[in-house]
Nucleic acid binder design. Structure first.
Length: 968
DNA sequence: CATTTCACG
DNA sequence: GACGTACGTGAAATGA
């Protein structure tokens, strides 16, 4: 890598290997340069208002102090300087007076904190530097250069993009709040060029915040592209005439000087006359009393506790190597971040995330944590594995948190950098492999705790961990799942991943998995992550989970969600975990035969389509297809959408095919087969698990806005059935020898629920009488007697019935039926007159939603609907349709979940060996011994029908067969 | 990485 | 009468 300060003309290329001076093991002479000014502003905005007892705001001081302590502890930093901006005017204003001219005054609450922060730096005995006429960035650039000349690694503690030009060649950056290192790779991500080209990009793109002009009309993206192409700014400006885009060319020619000035503004001066020699940038041992006095003055109780513990621990201050172990049995050192400040403090935001997490490598330490967990009666657990597919992954480590801030990580499956394993007796471990307890010993010791009925185990998405523990013979119980707590409380308001919830409830961004393992091709599996890094990440996850539990669990009772959670969501976890682990047998030969057949037919269709078009093109490209069909061949059909592309979906193409356009029919056929091949016959073969020979989907429990499950990797809830061709794929889903597949599905459950929830007497009666419901509505709406019913009329009534479930609109129904919106509206009007309770139900539901922001299912599930009070009618009506649909779809989801929970014990009680494999919203698929098929079918059917007792009967129908195609 | 299309209930 | 339409999902391919 070239020196960052040079600007040679090598083309911008992705960085080969990023230099990571901020990595764990560091030479003692590593230099840390803290961008003090930058950090003050970030701390101020990231941390909610806090005031000390005299009313002085101190949120930025608190954030700054935490950051500084973390830096000193985590990195064993010995050479550190905090660098501040001095007065406003700098040498840059000499040649560009407007530089940073529009910077607003700092907020009033921040002003008094500047001075206190300098006191804080002094109290920690860390050198602080500033120099009139120069920005902190210039001093940082200069010190970085000086240190590099002595071969010392440099870490710049900042996330300011203006400093990114310094990265590379032993200089790295560290964002202390996001806990992210910024190396060459990250700079490349941000600017699209290597660090030595950053100034050129900035010169072109400008920066409105600092009032750097740049070239108008050019942003970072374009700038990076240009610099990548021309090498550097000067070369670009000289050859600007060659640029093809006329506007861009002119802008560059007109503003060449402006770009040059901009470059001078953004280029840091690394030859400043420094006020303090490099050698003096050293952390000295602080005066403990002075430091504690300062902290007391600010009222930072939790920090004081930490500092006192550290002093007591070894007489030395802030040394990560001897950070206090959480003596959790007394609970003393594990005081999280109890708010010690005035009531303006937001207690939810007190979490700074940085407990002193312990790496557990000895039996003694493990015993101590197990004892602490027993004492607490509650623990958060999280497993780390080498892949995210629960069924076939290796256990790499376990983290536990017993109190806020008191968490540990127990590695059991880490390998050395060269892949050296460290299993078996510790004495035999090769020196370069990480030290860790044998997995069997850890499992044996944890099993009683994790199965103890008096100790609550908390996790986030425990369905995963249950499977991991299950494969080691541990049945995790009793449990609470923070993902599902959040889901029952706030479905529809936001997602329920841990990072999102941590930000929401703790105001904190945990280290991400990607940060630990890397991304893209440099990604490593978790078993290759260094132990200290793994500990930081994994223990933090457990800690955060525990904190989320504290934030969410107490809300269940007052918000009336405890029953839904305890009777439906929580009991479903192990049930679904078992289904995923079981998997379904898929016959690879059936799929590959289909693939071959489809491939041949696709090739034929493709040449046909090309022939009819007169030239070859990509049939799979909607863009090219639209051009061929509508522009070249002049078929009727217009543009649509904001992208301006022709619409070519089947709704558009089908009418054209019916008009006899051969090419369109062939395209539709091609589309269907291509879909079947790529999505199903090809990719499903890849999803067959090596070890089990079966396909293990993952059912998401907290994704949908209505309470339904969803299925991924692969999605087994959308296996084709509607067309004969697609249905063949179901022949590949089979039962193991001596078994059959049993499929049981609810008959018209959603329409039954409409009748029930809206209280439509005529519909309820019809369901009780077992009448053909679509024929019945047809006779009501169209006045045709049942004995004169035609298929066509029944089809229309069926479409209306579906429309009701979706929150009907004349336009939508009309399009579905191929009639005008006016005609459709007339049908709807008649329908609502015949079933008058329905209109009242829809109005009532919308009104409830407007008032409360959510709607509810029969079992009390809340679905929050966004946009119900929107002014924009389109968006509001969308929300209204959701509001009408959600209680229906959601209640159906509740009901099948209740059935799923009851089925495994019912089977066990009856001595039946059948296993549930799949759920497809209103259908359950089981694998049962052939001899038990009839008995099991009855039992499952009855359990499903009895899962809710309503004013309308629930009806379930069962089918069995060797394959899913036969069973359904 | 967003858009388009289409598979299911 | 506005505004753009049925509700809920996930995956593959294209192309910027």
């Amino acid at each position: 890598m070239t020196d960052a300060s040079q600007t040679d003309a090598s083309p911008a290329a992705p960085p080969a290997a990023s230099v990571e001076p901020a990595a764990a093991a560091k030479p003692a002479d590593a230099l840390y340069l803290v961008d003090g000014s930058g950090f003050i502003f970030r701390a101020f905005h990231a941390i909610p208002p806090l005031t000390r007892s005299d009313g002085t705001p101190v949120n930025a001081v608190m954030g700054f102090t935490n950051m500084l302590m973390k830096l000193l502890a985590d990195h064993h930093a010995e050479a550190v300087a905090v660098i501040f901006d001095s007065k406003r005017l700098t040498f840059r204003n000499d040649f560009y007076p407007d530089y940073k001219a529009h910077r607003p005054e700092p907020p009033e609450e921040l002003k008094p904190q500047f001075g206190i922060i300098r006191e804080a730096v002094e109290a920690f005995c860390v050198p602080s530097i500033e120099l009139e006429g120069f920005e902190a960035d210039d001093l940082i650039a200069t010190y970085a250069r000086l240190a590099r000349e002595q071969g010392r690694p440099v870490t710049i503690v900042s996330s300011d993009k203006d400093l990114m030009q310094l990265v590379g060649d032993g200089v790295g950056m560290l964002d202390p709040m996001k806990n992210k290192t910024i190396g060459v790779e990250e700079v490349f991500e941000k600017f699209g060029v290597t660090p030595d080209k950053v100034v050129d990009v900035q010169a072109l793109a400008g920066d409105p915040i600092d009032n750097v002009p740049g070239v108008p009309g050019i942003g970072v993206k374009t700038a990076a592209q240009l610099i990548g192409e021309y090498g550097d700014l000067e070369a670009l400006l000289e050859r600007a005439g060659e640029i093809k885009q006329p506007k861009r060319r002119q802008a560059l020619i007109d503003n060449a000087e402006l770009a040059r000035v901009s470059k001078r503004l953004v280029k840091l001066d690394d030859h400043v006359e420094v006020p303090t020699p490099l050698e003096d940038l050293k952390v000295r041992e602080p005066d403990h009393e002075k430091l504690l006095g300062f902290l007391r003055q600010q009222g930072f109780r939790s920090i004081i506790t930490r500092v006192e513990n550290e002093i007591r621990a070894d007489g030395r201050l802030v040394d990560g190597a001897s950070a206090p172990q959480p003596t959790a049995s007394t609970g003393e050192a594990a005081t999280g971040e109890a708010p010690a400040l005035s009531p303006t403090a937001n207690p939810r935001a007190q979490f700074d995330g940085k407990g002193s997490y312990e790496l557990v490598q000895t039996a003694e330490a493990l015993d101590r944590w197990i004892a602490a967990a027993y004492e607490a009666g509650t623990l958060a657990v999280d497993t780390e594995t080498d892949s995210l597919t629960a069924c076939s992954c290796k256990l790499v480590g376990i983290s536990m948190a017993v109190e806020q801030g008191a968490a540990c990580y127990i590695p059991v499956g880490h390998v050395g950098p060269d892949g050296a394993k460290a299993e078996g007796s510790l004495d035999l471990v090769p020196s370069d492999a990480p030290k860790q307890l044998p997995v069997d010993e850890v499992v044996a010791k944890l099993k009683p705790l994790l199965e103890d009925p008096t100790v609550l185990k908390i996790g986030h998405n425990l369905k995963f961990d249950i499977q991991v523990f299950g494969s080691h013979g541990i049945r995790l119980a009793p449990i609470d799942d923070t993902m599902l707590l959040s889901y029952v409380l706030e479905t529809g308001l936001h997602g329920h991943g841990m990072d999102e919830l941590a930000k929401l409830h703790c105001g904190y961004t945990p280290i991400t998995y990607d940060q630990v393992t890397g991304t893209g091709k440099s990604r490593v599996t978790f078993d290759r992550v260094a132990l200290d890094k793994a500990t930081e990440y994994a223990a933090e996850d457990a800690d955060v989970t525990l904190r989320l539990h504290h934030a969410l669990k107490p809300r269940l009772v007052p918000e009336r969600m405890i029953t839904l959670y305890e009777t439906i969501e929580r009991p479903l976890i192990p049930v679904v975990a078992d289904m995923e682990a079981e998997g379904i047998l898929v016959d690879r030969a059936v799929l590959s035969d289909l693939s071959r057949d489809l491939g041949a037919r696709l090739a034929e269709l493709e040449t046909e389509v090309h022939r009819l078009a007169g030239h070859p093109f990509n049939v799979g490209s909607p863009k090219q297809l639209g051009e061929v069909l509508f522009a070249e061949m002049g078929l009727a059909g217009g543009k649509k959408g904001k992208t301006g592309a022709y619409s070519t979906d089947s709704a558009t193409l089908e009418p054209l095919a019916e008009q006899g356009h051969d090419i369109v029919q062939k395209v539709l056929d091609w589309r269907q087969l291509a879909k079947l091949k790529s999505t199903y016959t090809d990719s499903l073969q890849q999803q067959i698990d090596q070890k089990t020979g079966r396909v293990h989907t993952s059912f998401a429990l907290a994704i949908t806005g209505t309470g339904r499950l969803s299925s991924t990797d692969p999605n087994l809830q959308n296996i084709p059935i509607r067309t004969e061709e697609g249905r063949k794929i179901r022949r590949a889903f089979i039962a193991k020898p001596g078994h059959v597949l049993l499929s049981v599905d609810y008959s018209q459950i959603e329409l039954r629920l409409v009748a029930e929830m809206a209280g439509i007497e005529a519909l309820k009666l019809a369901f009780r009488e077992g009448i053909d419901i679509h024929a019945m509505t047809a006779s009501q709406v169209f006045g045709v007697p049942l004995d004169q019913m035609t298929g066509e009329i029944r089809r229309k009534a069926k479409a209306i019935n579906f429309g009701i479930i979706y929150g009907i609109s004349g336009f939508g129904l009309g399009r579905q039926l191929g009639i005008s919106a006016g005609e459709a509206n007339a049908f709807i009007k008649t329908y609502l007159e015949r079933f008058s309770e329905l209109a009242a139900f829809m109005d009532r539901t919308k009104e409830f939603c407007r008032r409360n922001g959510y709607v509810t299912t029969l079992f009390g599930r809340r679905c929050h609907i966004q946009g119900i009070a929107e002014k924009n009618p389109a968006r509001r009506q969308f929300a209204e349709r959701q509001a009408i649909n959600a209680p229906i779809q959601g209640t159906a989801a509740d009901i099948i979940k209740r059935a799923m929970i009851r089925i495994p014990p019912a089977l066990a009680d009856a001595g039946l060996k059948g296993r549930m494999l799949l759920q497809v919203h209103d259908e359950l698929v089981l694998e049962v011994p052939e001899a038990e098929a009839a008995k099991t079918a009855d039992l499952v059917r009855q359990t499903m029908e009895a899962a809710a007792s309503l004013g309308v009967p629930l009806v379930a129908e069962a089918g069995t067969g060797h394959s899913w195609a036969e069973a359904h």
